[in-house]
């Protein structure tokens, strides 16, 4: 990595950036509004959508800002009448094919169309073949896909499992799970990264289908599975978790999630959840009781054993799934209230 500085001219002003800085990043750092669709910071620049074209002196035609690095002495214009017209026309081309999905997902394509104040496109291409899949996590609305390849690139570059492909060419080109199989039958690990990278909501979470994303509240917390500690946002609606998302640039996960972290939250509201204290009766079965009864039974049970066999005849086992505060309290209970150091967890690592 070079720390050399490059001086170039952007929109009439000289600007200094690190060598290797893309024109897109340079434009953004200066506050220049350059529209993008296929670009995602976590992915290598693609340059396919052509929304971020900028003018470069000496180049035969505009260049994609995402895919062009600043170099010494360049003269670049991020806006002009011609650029505005070309970008707007390309957006119009997209809208000739794109059919926004229903279901409340944010759609960058529609936003771009609005930004260029587009009316009805001059041509409407036919609908694509619908895609049905029996996996329960990831849905695909083919007509909303704009072939930006973000999902394909996410799967190739970040997950490196190549479970999605840009298939065919020309009017028949589509994105699909590799070889047209079900998501369940490819090398797909159901991480849902493709969903998170889709700008139009073409790829979507089946579990959250139809839920207006803007109507959800989000609570930032930490994933409950492995020890990586991914920072997640629990999206809730009417008191229920409906989706898990993660923000780029945040936490050890930098916006990435695995299949468990993103999709396996049903247990939270599962009907098997314990909702009342239970006490084993004389019949040997567990029966629901009030908290007071349950607490009394715990106190009685622990006290009796302590009295008869001593504090060290009681053992405590904490879970590595609970919070620091929970497990701190448990060992404090063992040590300071019961009076034993018999406290352990399933700590193997």
């Amino acid at each position: 990595m070079s720390h050399d500085k490059i001086t170039f001219n952007l929109d009439g002003e000289d600007m200094q950036v690190d060598a290797g800085t893309s024109l897109l990043d340079a434009c953004r750092s200066k506050g220049a509004q350059v529209p993008t669709l296929c670009h995602e910071d976590r992915l290598e620049p693609f340059g396919g959508c052509r929304m971020c074209l900028v003018e470069l002196d000496g180049a035969p035609r505009p260049v994609p800002a995402c895919k062009t690095n600043a170099s010494e002495g360049m003269v670049v214009r991020s806006a002009s009448e011609s650029l505005e017209r070309v970008r707007g026309t390309i957006a119009e081309m997209f809208m000739a094919e794109h059919r926004p999905s229903q279901g409340g997902r944010p759609n960058a394509m529609e936003k771009v169309a609005k930004r260029f104040d587009l009316g009805a496109p001059p041509i409407q291409f036919p609908k694509r073949t619908e895609y049905h899949d029996h996996n329960r996590f990831i849905g695909f609305d083919t007509d909303a896909c704009i072939l930006c390849n973000r999902c394909v690139r996410y799967c190739d570059e970040i997950m490196q499992v190549t479970a999605l492909e840009h298939f065919g060419q020309g009017p028949d080109a589509i994105v699909q799970p590799t070889d047209g199989l079900s998501f369940l039958d490819t090398s797909c690990e159901l991480c849902g990264g493709c969903v998170s990278s889709c700008p139009t909501g073409a790829l979507y979470e089946k579990q959250a289908q139809g839920i207006e994303e803007s109507s959800c509240e989000t609570t930032r917390t930490v994933c409950t599975f492995c020890g990586v500690g991914c920072v997640i946002d629990l999206n809730t609606k009417d008191g229920n978790v409906v989706k898990v998302t993660a923000e780029e640039g945040v936490g050890p996960n930098d916006g990435h999630l695995c299949t468990k972290g993103r999709f396996a939250w049903q247990f939270i509201h599962h009907e098997d959840r314990l909702s009342e204290p239970l006490v084993r009766g004389d019949d040997g079965e567990l029966h629901a009781v009030s908290w007071e009864e349950a607490y009394a039974r715990v106190v009685e049970g622990l006290s009796k054993v302590k009295q008869e066999h001593g504090a060290d005849s009681i053992g405590f086992l904490a879970s590595s799934r609970c919070t620091n505060e929970d497990v701190y309290a448990l060992q404090k209970l063992a040590r300071s209230v019961i009076g034993t150091n018999n406290v352990h967890s399933c700590a193997a690592t």
Partner: peptide
């Protein structure tokens, strides 16, 4: 060491250990 559970580290840190 890559910890297996969300709070193995914390559980150890918090003294859930006999010694």
């Amino acid at each position: 060491p890559l910890r297996g559970q969300n709070n193995v580290q914390g559980c150890n840190d918090m003294g859930n250990n006999p010694v």
